[in-house]
């Protein structure tokens, strides 16, 4: 039972990411590399943040504002990294296109670019799930479980797995949104990712209150669904546009 429970929690947090990985990423080596490097970037951001906050932890107070500052700084830092990631990716894209010309392959399609963005986002999401959920899962394989005082109805591991799933979704798809926003110069999409990230982070503050997770988690899932829908709409719109453009192109020839 215990091993089963541990695996269950892990799959709950990472199952969708895993299936996405197997279905899409694992077939294209370059996407795997993107995924790995984005995971590494996320890990490094976490290490830097923890280095900054190391002196103040563990927080003795029960007040919520230090945590709010913590989340604010972390989110700000990670969003900064996202912009950096985009800049690096932009350079990479030029290289890839040049390479494609050399081996006389087609240049990157729009779907390819989206896939790269997806892989990058998935890296962030997986890293989040691994470090915030899987990393703490070791005791879950043992014979007992653990409850947090503030959220006493559900086992801690289950809650963290559920939250990790929401965050993995948000991270994965907000990266796609952000990249397409950068590429099109769309201000709304550019701001979407940081805002969603910040809102989601702040929503977890509700867990500090007694029974707050009952409210916080559904809201978190609303945010995740909004992200998902927005990403889906955006991808659909861009696909249609590019198809129309291609159609026009071939018609004009």
């Amino acid at each position: 039972m215990t091993v089963a429970a541990g695996i269950g929690y892990a799959l709950l947090a990472l199952g969708p990411s895993l299936s996405l990985f197997i279905a899409l990423i694992s077939k294209k080596p370059f996407l795997i590399l993107t995924l790995l490097s984005s995971t590494l970037v996320w890990l490094m951001s976490l290490i830097v943040m923890s280095a900054l906050w190391r002196a103040f932890l563990p927080l003795k107070t029960t007040a919520w504002w230090p945590y709010a500052i913590l989340i604010l700084t972390s989110v700000g830092f990670q969003e900064g990294l996202r912009i950096l990631f985009w800049k690096v990716y932009k350079k990479l894209e030029d290289l890839l296109d040049a390479f494609a010309d050399r081996v006389s392959k087609p240049r990157l399609f729009m779907t390819d670019k989206m896939q790269i963005a997806l892989a990058g986002g998935l890296g962030h999401g997986v890293a989040h799930a691994v470090f915030f959920c899987l990393g703490l899962l070791t005791p879950a394989f043992g014979p007992a479980t653990y409850y947090v005082e503030k959220c006493s109805k559900i086992p801690f591991f289950l809650v963290s797995a559920i939250i990790a799933l929401a965050f993995a979704t948000i991270h994965t798809f907000s990266m796609v949104i952000a990249f397409s926003g950068y590429e099109e110069g769309n201000k709304v999409d550019q701001c979407f990712a940081p805002v969603v990230h910040l809102i989601a982070g702040m929503l977890t503050l509700t867990n500090l209150a007694f029974g707050g997770c009952m409210i916080g988690i559904p809201l978190l899932y609303c945010v995740a669904i909004v992200t998902l829908v927005h990403c889906g709409k955006m991808a659909w719109r861009r696909l249609i546009e590019s198809r129309n453009r291609e159609g026009n192109f071939s018609n004009s020839q």
Binding site: L59, L70, S74, H128, F131, F132, F156, V159, F167, L208
Partner: peptide, 13 residues
């Protein structure tokens, strides 16, 4: 300590 500290409070980002 950072991650354990935040995530045992169910704080994530």
């Amino acid at each position: 300590p950072f991650v354990v500290g935040t995530s045992t409070n169910l704080l994530m980002f």
